[in-house]
Design a protein around this nucleic acid. Structure first.
Length: 333
DNA sequence: GAGACGTGGTC
DNA sequence: TGACCAAGTCT
């Protein structure tokens, strides 16, 4: 008989609750494989379920299996990430599949430390893959789980992660890891809501130190002062195509295709400005003031420049990894 | 360990 | 409408 962790009894309540009330229709919860769990977990980092769903489906249509993605280029992976944000995640996926190809013979590793060592996979994501896909008792600790645990034990805000990881370990239902792991996330997402938790529906209401208490607010994230940043892009285009430039800087939208920020020397006097306007675009940590100069050319030239560029058919911009403001601009061309 | 890193939805 | 929120990881 396996020894129970202190709160495994509660974990059991969660896995049972999941079977009745969990979100069983999420696409990544069907045909479970390490590959599908991996991609979904990366997509779901700091990203809401409803946002991730269409991206996950599109990704799986393009690359249904781990094997099928092994030959992909970084550009192709970034194109599938276009519009999802935190593009570093897509580059980590590219790096990870390269490691899997070269170091693990094309098979997703099972060993926890090997999983954890992969780019873009931290302790929580590694725990999700290990527990969901490999049935190994490693906990997860995302904001959903943190919120449930914080309320369950009536912990003060800003409690340190070390304790939270211990609590997350001791509440796991190690007999039913799959429903437990999915369940604690669903519990946080659908019952133990940030603003007004639905304690009546909670399987832990008899155990929770905050159940039906008014003072269960989770303190807001630290507010950061957003810096403003001015950007300028030129959209050179003719009837068929436009000019894109690769962003190889280590900053926002790194690795994506943008537009040239200046006029190539050989373009002077070869275009007419049809529009010139500024939009603001919010990032999590920065406010961008983006000026677009839309420049019509009779025939798009090849630029004389040291930058990596590409001429792109206007109606196939979605084959490129590009950030939202730029795809928006092209779409409305 | 604080800050960087996207986007969409809500109120 | 601007502030805030939503399945983290890396440096």
């Amino acid at each position: 008989m396996q020894k129970l962790f202190p709160n495994e009894r509660l974990g059991r309540k969660i896995s049972k609750w999941y079977l009745l009330h969990g979100r069983h229709d999420l696409p990544w919860r069907k045909s479970i494989s390490p590959y599908r769990v991996w991609i979904s977990e990366i997509m779901l980092q700091q990203t809401q379920v409803v946002t991730a769903i269409p991206f996950f489906k599109r990704f799986m249509r393009q690359y249904p299996t781990l094997k099928s993605i092994l030959g992909a280029s970084e550009d192709e992976v970034l194109a599938l990430w276009s519009g999802l944000g935190y593009y570093r995640r897509a580059r980590y996926i590219f790096q990870t599949k390269e490691i899997i190809k070269n170091l693990y013979k094309g098979k997703f590793p099972k060993d926890f430390d090997s999983i954890l060592s992969l780019p873009g996979i931290g302790r929580s994501t590694a725990g999700a893959i290990a527990s969901i896909a490999h049935n190994q008792p490693f906990p997860i600790l995302d904001t959903n789980v943190k919120r449930v645990l914080q309320r369950l034990h009536a912990l003060p805000d800003n409690i340190n992660d070390k304790l939270m990881w211990e609590l997350a370990t001791h509440i796991q239902d190690r007999k039913d890891l799959f429903p437990y792991t999915q369940g604690i996330m669903d519990l946080g997402a659908t019952v133990c809501l940030t603003k007004e938790p639905l304690c009546k529906r909670c399987p832990l209401k008899k155990d929770c130190k905050s159940a039906f208490q008014l003072n269960t607010q989770i303190s807001p994230r630290k507010i950061i002062q957003k810096k403003k940043m001015a950007l300028k892009f030129y959209l050179f285009f003719d009837n068929e195509q436009f000019l894109a430039q690769k962003n190889n800087e280590l900053s926002i939208w790194s690795g994506l295709w943008l537009l040239p920020p200046e006029i190539p020397i050989n373009f002077v006097n070869k275009y007419t400005v049809s529009k010139d306007f500024t939009v603001t675009h919010q990032l999590s940590h920065r406010t961008l003031e983006i000026t677009f100069v839309v420049c019509k050319m009779k025939r798009l030239l090849r630029p004389k420049t040291n930058h990596e560029y590409k001429t792109v058919k206007i109606n196939s911009y979605f084959d490129l990894g590009m950030p939202k403001p730029i795809t928006q601009l092209i779409k409305n061309l």
